[in-house]
Computed example of a mutant assay.
Amino acid sequence: MANEQNETMNKINAFRDARNWRPAHNEKDLALSISLEAAELLEIYQWKSAEEGNQDYEHLKEEIADVLIYSYMLADNLGMDIDEIIAEKLVKNAKKYPEPIKD
């Protein structure tokens, strides 16, 4: 998985660098961009049922990708490994939200 993550990050950075966008991609602005793109994702469902929103599949893919791209870029800027921070968070979540006891 780490190789796939590195390959994806390399593609994102190559796209950014080819356009000389690196100066604008500081941590604050990337965090803001994540929030803005997440709002665009929410807008797909505004005033609709989940089923109606789900029908806009291509638009959903685009907005999810935007959120993930900015998230990857922020983590990369901060020297974080995506797989590692997700694994750590899942451990914390498992402690906070234990599995229900089965009868």
Rank of each mutant, 00 (worst) to 15 (best):
A24L: 15
L68T: 08
N77C: 13
V91R: 12
E84C: 04
L36F: 05
E99M: 10
A14I: 00
A39Y: 03
E99F: 03
A75D: 14
L60M: 10
G53P: 03
E58N: 07
K28F: 13
D66C: 04
L74N: 12
A87G: 08
P98C: 10
E40K: 02
Y57K: 11
I12A: 05
E40Y: 03
L42E: 10
Y45Q: 05
S35Y: 06
D29I: 05
M73Q: 13
A39V: 06
D83Q: 13
E51L: 07
W21A: 06
I69K: 06
E37M: 00
E99G: 07
E51W: 00
M1E: 13
A18K: 10
I86H: 08
D83G: 14
P98A: 12
K95M: 09
L60I: 14
D17N: 12
Y97W: 14
E27G: 09
L30G: 05
W21I: 03
D29A: 06
S35R: 10
A31S: 11
L36H: 07
D76I: 01
R16I: 07
K28G: 01
L60Q: 11
K48F: 06
A65K: 02
E7K: 00
I44E: 11
E84V: 10
W21S: 00
L74F: 11
L78Q: 14
A31E: 05
E99Y: 01
K11A: 14
E37Y: 01
A65V: 02
R16D: 02
K48L: 10
A50H: 02
L36A: 10
W47D: 15
N6F: 13
E7L: 07
N54L: 15
G53V: 08
N26S: 06
Y70E: 07
E4C: 01
A87C: 04
W47L: 04
W47T: 06
L74R: 12
I34T: 11
H59K: 08
E63N: 03
W47H: 11
A24E: 12
E7V: 00
I85T: 14
P23C: 04
N20E: 08
R16P: 00
N54V: 02
N13D: 06
Q5A: 07
S71P: 05
I44Y: 04
K95L: 12
D76P: 01
Y70R: 02
R16F: 06
A14V: 00
E27L: 09
G79F: 07
E52Q: 15
N20T: 06
K61C: 15
S33F: 08
P100W: 01
K11G: 04
Q55W: 08
V91N: 12
S35G: 13
K92W: 08
N54R: 05
A94V: 00
E99S: 12
I86Q: 10
I101H: 06
Q5E: 14
A75W: 07
E37S: 03
M9S: 05
S33I: 03
Y97G: 10
G53K: 03
K96W: 07
E37A: 06
